[in-house]
Computed example of a mutant assay.
Amino acid sequence: MQMILSSCREREREIEMASSSSSNFPCAACKFLRRKCMPDCTFAPYFPPEEPHKFFNVHKVFGASNVSKLINEVAPHQRQDAVNSLAYEAEARLKDPVYGCVGAISVLQRQVMRLQRELDTIRADLIRYAAAYNEMPPTTTVGRSSFDHNAGNFYYPNEPYGDNGGSDGGSL
């Protein structure tokens, strides 16, 4: 019984020490810069220890002092967005050193313009087809059914109910 109690106490101490040391893990910035992470560390809220690559990229492109200055100059409620933007730009800059995220934006803008031209072409085709279709007689037989464009009703002339496809005027 004594042995069980002592092993339980040892386990509790281990858990206590692990939890106290886990809260003292340095942030990714302090770990990378090999300095002690203080409770008031500028980087700690934005560069958690689980994401060392985030700080590595930002530091490589912008430098730690510039990032620190930028974080301190931005309003507190905008800091997370600013750091996320820096991380995105740094990653894009490392992938494409010349254009960075501007290259990605440019590709997306060209894609939007291409899709807009395609959409304009399709709209023009629809207008052309609608104009040609309106010149046809209002009721045109296509297979077994036809569509009255003015009334918006389908008619089934060969159905046993008569010309209009049923007693309700032919609408479905």
Rank of each mutant, 00 (worst) to 15 (best):
Y99W: 07
Q78T: 00
D125A: 06
V112W: 14
D148G: 02
L86G: 04
T140C: 12
A131G: 02
E73P: 00
E91T: 04
G143F: 10
P76W: 03
A132W: 07
V98W: 07
G152F: 07
H149K: 14
F147G: 03
I122Y: 14
Q109S: 03
M113Y: 06
R114D: 14
D148K: 03
H77S: 06
E118F: 02
P138M: 02
R128F: 07
D96K: 03
S65D: 15
G63M: 06
S65L: 11
S65C: 01
Q80W: 01
A132Q: 14
Q116M: 07
F62M: 09
L108F: 06
V112S: 06
M113P: 01
T139M: 12
R144H: 05
V67I: 13
V83I: 09
R110I: 00
D148L: 06
V112R: 15
A130S: 15
V102S: 10
G63L: 03
G143I: 02
V83Q: 09
N72W: 01
T139A: 04
G152Y: 10
P138E: 14
C101F: 08
V83H: 07
A64H: 15
M136Y: 08
V142T: 04
A64Q: 12
L94V: 01
A131T: 13
S68C: 11
E135G: 05
E89F: 02
V107L: 12
D81G: 06
Q111D: 12
Y129I: 05
N84A: 03
S106K: 10
